[in-house]
Deep mutational scan, measured.
Amino acid sequence: TRVETATETAWISLVTALHLVLGLNAVLGLLLLRWQFPAHYRRLRHALW
């Protein structure tokens, strides 16, 4: 059971790390998009709101 718990903890930390990386990538991607295409982003925002 100790090995199972260790594997579980490893999986949880792995999934958490993946989520963090994906979240960071999403934020960075959005920031890059805003920086690269400000006009396009503004138009998109007007369409959404």
Rank of each mutant, 00 (worst) to 15 (best):
Thr1Asp: 08
Thr1Leu: 11
Thr1Glu: 06
Arg2Gln: 14
Arg2Asp: 12
Arg2Ser: 14
Val3Pro: 03
Glu4Trp: 03
Glu4Ala: 05
Glu4Gly: 03
Thr5Ile: 13
Thr5Asn: 02
Thr5Cys: 06
Ala6Arg: 10
Ala6Asp: 08
Ala6Tyr: 10
Thr7Phe: 07
Thr7Met: 05
Glu8Gly: 14
Glu8Asp: 11
Thr9Gln: 07
Thr9Gly: 09
Thr9Leu: 10
Thr9Lys: 11
Ala10Val: 13
Ala10Ile: 13
Ala10Pro: 12
Ala10Asn: 15
Ala10Met: 11
Ala10Gly: 14
Trp11Arg: 15
Trp11Tyr: 09
Ile12Arg: 15
Ile12Thr: 13
Ile12Trp: 15
Ser13Asn: 06
Ser13Arg: 14
Ser13Phe: 08
Ser13Thr: 14
Leu14Ser: 15
Leu14His: 04
Leu14Pro: 12
Val15Ile: 11
Val15Leu: 05
Val15Gln: 07
Thr16Phe: 14
Thr16Asp: 05
Thr16Glu: 07
Ala17Phe: 11
Ala17Ile: 15
Ala17Glu: 06
Leu18Ser: 07
Leu18Ile: 14
Leu18Cys: 08
Leu18Phe: 04
Leu18Val: 14
His19Thr: 15
His19Tyr: 08
His19Pro: 15
Leu20Phe: 07
Val21Ile: 08
Leu22Trp: 06
Leu22Val: 04
Leu22Met: 00
Gly23Asp: 02
Gly23Phe: 06
Gly23His: 02
Leu24Tyr: 03
Leu24Thr: 04
Leu24Ala: 14
Leu24Glu: 03
Asn25Thr: 15
Asn25Ala: 15
Asn25Lys: 14
Ala26Phe: 10
Ala26Cys: 08
Ala26Asn: 00
Val27Met: 11
Val27Tyr: 07
Leu28Met: 09
Gly29Arg: 02
Gly29Ile: 10
Gly29Asn: 00
Gly29Ala: 12
Leu30Phe: 12
Leu31Phe: 09
Leu31Gln: 03
Leu32Ala: 04
Leu32Thr: 03
Leu32Arg: 01
Leu32His: 12
Leu33Glu: 02
Leu33Trp: 04
Leu33Ala: 04
Leu33Tyr: 09
Leu33Lys: 01
Leu33Ser: 01
Arg34His: 02
Arg34Trp: 04
Arg34Val: 13
Arg34Ile: 13
Trp35Arg: 09
Trp35Phe: 06
Gln36Met: 05
Gln36Ile: 05
Gln36Val: 08
Gln36Asp: 02
Gln36Pro: 01
Gln36Glu: 05
Phe37Arg: 03
Phe37Ile: 04
Pro38Arg: 04
Pro38Ala: 05
Pro38Tyr: 04
Pro38Asn: 04
Pro38Met: 08
Ala39Glu: 14
His40Lys: 06
His40Trp: 08
His40Asn: 04
His40Ser: 09
Tyr41Thr: 04
Tyr41Arg: 01
Arg42Cys: 07
Arg42Ser: 10
Arg42Pro: 02
Arg42Met: 08
Arg42Phe: 09
Arg42Asp: 12
Arg42Glu: 12
Arg42Leu: 09
Arg43Tyr: 05
Arg43His: 04
Arg43Leu: 05
Leu44Lys: 01
Leu44Gln: 00
Arg45Leu: 12
Arg45His: 05
Arg45Glu: 03
Arg45Gln: 06
Arg45Cys: 13
Arg45Met: 14
His46Gly: 12
His46Ser: 12
His46Leu: 08
Ala47Arg: 07
Ala47Cys: 11
Leu48Trp: 07
Leu48Glu: 01
Leu48Tyr: 03
Leu48Gln: 01
Leu48Met: 12
Leu48Phe: 09
Trp49Asn: 05
Trp49Arg: 04
